[in-house]
Design a protein around this nucleic acid. Structure first.
Lengths: 155, 155
DNA sequence: TATAGACCTTCCAGTAACTAGAAGGTCAAG
DNA sequence: CTTGACCTTCTAGTTACTGGAAGGTCTATA
């Protein structure tokens, strides 16, 4: 692994982002916000990434694909650094995310139901009135609740 | 309706937003971006909304709750202004939205599947290694797709 | 009439997580 | 030695609001 180590400890941003499956812009952004910082800089100022940073970037990419926020990734990453500790905490975060996903799916389901209902009513005729529009113009409470910011807190 | 018309054509932002079920901040924002502009201003500079604007705000609220973007609302609203024309166009937009919702639901489903799988592997023990972390650190392509900005909606 | 407090105004800044683009430096190949 | 791909920093834009400050207005009550 010593050969590999040498080769992998001098990755430019382009290479590491390809290997991690992220846009360079994103990797640079992660460096800016201190999520995954390069191991160092070359004489000419190029960011240098090593194997560990590559791992972290892959980690972040995956966690993001699971819907974890960047802040959650930061948390996860620090646990990851602690290596093997705090399995409990990690699992808790995952379970919480799972619940959020379930709730989001519920919302999408009812959205889909409502929208397909009104869409079916619509004749799709150039001349005719469109029931979609009149459905939308009703007073609140008769339709799916709007998900606003204040909603989350109070309900 | 003349009494009503008079009463309803002098709604302040607080009243109209309550009646539409939106935060005042949001209604002000909609005015700023020209989505739903007040009918006029009082002597003291207060925004004045009428019945028609109330209808539009309700319309937007509903459409947004269906996941339509503000831009889509603008489009819908202009069709709505045309009143009864272009049923075809409205239906098209709705059907397109429907497809996007379906796709998003698919994504959430696979996300849920993967995450619950790795979460189940995790013992939730303070001492033990957490498989969630090692799962995340794998190379790209083995896991769910990453949702980038081009993705539908928010999570 | 004074004043409290509920409402309204504007403007500025911030959110999440990037993305786009400009202006310019660096590096390897031909 | 030049071309073109790569790298740098910087600013600004995206979506759809939300929060807050500083200050004007309106109304009810003491």
């Amino acid at each position: 692994m010593s050969d590999n180590e040498n080769a992998l400890s001098r990755l430019t941003i382009g290479k590491v982002s390809t290997m991690a499956g992220l846009p360079t812009k994103t990797v640079r952004y992660y460096a800016d916000i201190g999520l995954v910082v390069p191991r160092g800089r070359s004489d000419s100022g190029y960011r240098e990434y090593g194997h560990e940073e590559l791992q972290k970037l892959r980690f972040v990419r995956s966690a993001r694909s699971f819907g974890f926020s960047v802040d959650a990734c930061r948390e996860l990453l620090s646990l990851y650094e602690d290596n093997g500790r705090a399995s409990r905490e990690v699992k808790d975060i995952a379970l919480q995310r799972l619940q959020e996903i379930e709730q989001k799916m519920q919302e999408l389901k009812s959205l889909h139901r409502e929208l397909s209902r009104v869409a079916q009513l619509c004749p799709g005729d150039d001349a005719a009135d469109c029931p979609i529009l009149s459905t939308f113009a009703q007073s609140p409470g008769e339709l799916a609740r709007i998900p606003t910011g204040s909603d989350v807190g109070s309900l």
